[in-house]
Simulated assay, not measured.
Amino acid sequence: MNLKDYQYFKKLAELKNFSETANFFKVSQPTITYSLKRLEENFDITLIERKSFANSLSLTPAGQQMMLHINRILLENDLIEEDMRRIKRDKIVMGWPPIITNYLIPKVFDKLKRTGLLNSIEPVADGSRELLSKLKNGKLDMSLLGTTVLPQENHLDYQIIKKHQFKFIASEKRDTSNLKTIEQLFDEDFISLDEGSVHKLALQRVKERYNVSPDTTFQTADYNLMLSLVQADKGISFVTETAIEGVSGIKEIKLDGIQLPSFYILFIYRHSMIGDQRINELIDVFKSI
Rank of each mutant, 00 (worst) to 15 (best):
K162T: 12
K139Q: 14
K136H: 09
K167G: 03
E172G: 04
Y158G: 00
N137K: 12
F168D: 00
K162L: 12
D126Y: 06
L150V: 01
T181N: 03
V124N: 05
F166S: 00
N154H: 13
F186V: 05
K180G: 00
V124W: 06
I169H: 02
D157P: 05
G138D: 09
I161F: 10
E188S: 10
E172A: 06
M142K: 02
I161H: 03
L156S: 05
S143V: 07
T176I: 13
E130L: 10
S171A: 05
K163R: 14
K139F: 14
H155E: 15
Q165Y: 08
S128T: 01
E172D: 11
R174I: 06
T148S: 08
L131F: 04
N178P: 00
K139L: 14
T148Q: 09
G138T: 08
L150W: 00
H155F: 15
K173L: 13
K167D: 08
N154Q: 11
L140H: 06
S143T: 11
H164E: 15
H155V: 09
I169R: 02
S128I: 02
L185M: 04
F166D: 03
G146K: 03
A170Y: 02
D126A: 14
H164I: 04
G138Y: 12
M142I: 13
N154M: 10
K180Q: 11
L144E: 06
E130P: 00
L144P: 01
G138A: 06
K163W: 01
Q159T: 14
E153A: 11
Q152M: 12
E183S: 13
E183Q: 15
H155Q: 13
S128K: 01
L150G: 01
S143G: 05
L145Y: 11
L132R: 06
S171H: 05
K136E: 15
D157R: 15
P151C: 04
D175Y: 00
N154G: 04
I169M: 03
F166T: 01
K162H: 13
L131W: 05
A125S: 11
D141L: 08
K139T: 10
G127E: 09
H164C: 12
Q152Y: 07
K136V: 15
Y158W: 09
T148C: 07
K162A: 13
K167M: 11
S177Q: 07
K139D: 15
G146P: 08
K139V: 08
V124C: 01
R129M: 12
K173G: 02
H164Q: 15
L179V: 07
E188M: 15
P123V: 04
T148Y: 05
R129E: 14
E153F: 07
Y158H: 10
Q165W: 11
A170G: 00
I161Q: 05
Q165E: 12
E130N: 15
I160T: 09
L144W: 03
L144R: 02
K173D: 10
R174W: 06
E188Y: 11
A125T: 12
H155M: 10
S171V: 03
S171P: 07
K136R: 14
Q152C: 06
L156Y: 06
D157F: 11
L145Q: 14
T176M: 11
